Lab assay of single mutants.
Amino acid sequence: KLPPGWEKRMFANGTVYYFNHITNASQFERPSG
């Protein structure tokens, strides 16, 4: 399970990334916590 605010998303080319809808942060590494 991801930390609060984070969700797993995917680009059109299939690349997975993680987006935080609270802070609008995005990253390729899975957030810890």
Rank of each mutant, 00 (worst) to 15 (best):
Q27L: 05
R30I: 13
Q27I: 06
K8D: 02
L2I: 06
F28P: 08
P3Q: 05
L2W: 04
M10R: 09
F19S: 02
R30G: 04
F19D: 03
L2D: 03
P31T: 01
S32N: 13
V16W: 10
G33I: 13
H21N: 13
G33A: 13
E7Q: 07
N13P: 04
P4E: 11
I22K: 07
L2A: 03
R30E: 12
G5K: 02
F28A: 10
W6T: 00
H21G: 07
N24P: 01
P31Q: 01
A25T: 15
E29P: 06
P3M: 05
G5V: 02
R9D: 01
A25D: 10
A12K: 11
K8Q: 12
L2Q: 02
E7V: 11
R9M: 11
L2K: 06
Y18D: 01
F11K: 14
L2R: 01
F28H: 08
S26L: 15
Y18T: 00
E7S: 08
Q27F: 04
R9T: 04
R9Q: 05
G14D: 04
P3L: 06
A12W: 08
R9S: 03
M10G: 05
P4F: 12
F11P: 04
Q27H: 04
G5M: 06
G5T: 03
G5W: 06
W6E: 00
N20Y: 03
S26R: 12
F19V: 07
H21L: 15
L2V: 04
P31H: 01
P3F: 03
G33S: 13
P31E: 01
F11T: 15
H21P: 10
A25G: 07
A25S: 12
G14R: 01
F11H: 14
R9L: 10
P3G: 07
P31L: 01
E7N: 04
L2P: 11
E7Y: 04
Y17N: 02
V16D: 08
V16I: 14
R30F: 15
N20R: 00
T15M: 12
V16L: 07
Y17T: 02
Y18E: 01
P4R: 09
Y18H: 00
P3S: 05
P31S: 01
R9V: 09
I22P: 01
G33R: 09
T23I: 05
G33M: 14
S26P: 03
K8P: 06
K1G: 14
N24Q: 14
H21M: 12
M10V: 14
Y17S: 03
N24W: 05
A25F: 08
S26H: 12
N24L: 12
K1A: 14
T23D: 05
T23M: 06
P31Y: 01
P3K: 03
